[in-house]
Design a protein around this nucleic acid. Structure first.
Lengths: 194, 194
DNA sequence: TTGATTCTTGACTGAACAATCCAGAAACAG
DNA sequence: CTGTTTCTGGATTGTTCAGTCAAGAATCAA
């Protein structure tokens, strides 16, 4: 038997995730990561292979954490539409720092999706997860009479995912929260009136 | 008097723009840029100051070219709504390569907006330009009875800009064109039914 | 043609980069 | 306690980076 790891792998990934989230992949150096994770260089290479492997783990971590957060938010209200609204409003409702940081998946898509197949794969599964949750909430809303049952729930979910991406992008670009809130209401009004 | 420049500045910027567009800022080296521009290193530093200055010029170039393209597309049809639809459909209608490349403004927003004030400024003016065009087209549509005149044209324009950002992101993430087209139609249906 | 000016070219600089190496410390089985 | 294994951290590697320098070529006014 041998020595046991001194650091918590999950915690280390979570800290690396924040750095990648704030700075992007290319702009982040391994030193940045090591400092944030509080571990030695060799530990990082032993545990994650290389910077790229760590990035993939960070993306998966984000997907898990953020997916859980989204699921929770969408289940927080008895009314599906109200829950959806609350989720959408969480984007303009975030702190300025959070809004500037944006969404790691959006950032990764813009930076890496077209050149890095492994990243693209992780992002695809992440998108599918979100799409599934949105489709479910739309169906629930239809079932409860909050939305037109003739709506194609899958298309509506794609539409919502598109809007969410756009809102996150807008938040990062510095669009004022009030404008983003107006867009949320406009989006939901369009959904309801169809 | 002295020697005249041997290269066309605008053409050089346009070529650099494509490289930044495809690779992002951090992932692009000055060697990449020089090779694409076909000029010497010193010429680049003399003309643009540094890599960052060249990037800003490339962004402004994109803004000009793409803004003109958008304006043209929005004026190409007698019906404002049909023109808008055509413009939105140009996103899923692009070639796979174009879709993978995405939109330089979107890429720049995700990569730089929160850390680079100068880039953020250029992007803000770019966004304002697009917003203005969209607001105009919405008002025209209202005037011609294609949209409810009670709609707040500014909010509708923000909504459309959000959707466009989301579509471009989706295109880059590899969402199938058919799905994007469905989202476009869903978006326009939501607009018309309000 | 001359001379002043500016452009071009390629070699160069120091810093930062991702990744490796290695020696020693720590943990555990026996 | 001893031996084996694995983790740790600092030194180090070779590469690539953005940006500078210097020498020569090209241009044009006079």
């Amino acid at each position: 038997m041998a020595r046991t790891k001194e650091f918590d792998r999950d915690e280390a990934v979570r800290r690396a995730m924040v750095v990648f989230w704030e700075q992007g992949y290319e702009a982040t150096s391994t030193d940045d990561l090591l400092r944030a994770m509080g571990i030695g260089r060799q530990s990082m290479y032993d545990t994650f292979g290389d910077k790229h492997g760590l990035y993939l783990d960070a993306l998966r971590c984000y997907q898990t954490e953020y997916g859980a957060n989204m699921a929770e938010c969408l289940r927080s209200q008895p009314s599906p539409l109200a829950a959806l609204r609350e989720f959408l409003l969480s984007i303009p409702g975030a702190t300025p720092k959070e809004r500037a940081r944006g969404c790691l998946s959006v950032n990764a898509t813009a930076e890496m999706a077209h050149t890095d197949p492994e990243v693209a794969t992780v992002l695809k599964s992440s998108g599918a997860l979100g799409l599934g949750m949105l489709e479910r909430i739309v169906r629930e809303a239809q079932h409860k009479g909050e939305l037109n049952p003739k709506l194609d729930a899958r298309v509506a979910a794609s539409f919502l995912l598109t809007t969410i991406g756009g809102l996150r992008l807008g938040a990062k670009a510095g669009t004022p929260p009030d404008t983003l809130r107006a867009v949320v209401d406009f989006t939901l009004a369009g959904l309801k009136s169809q």
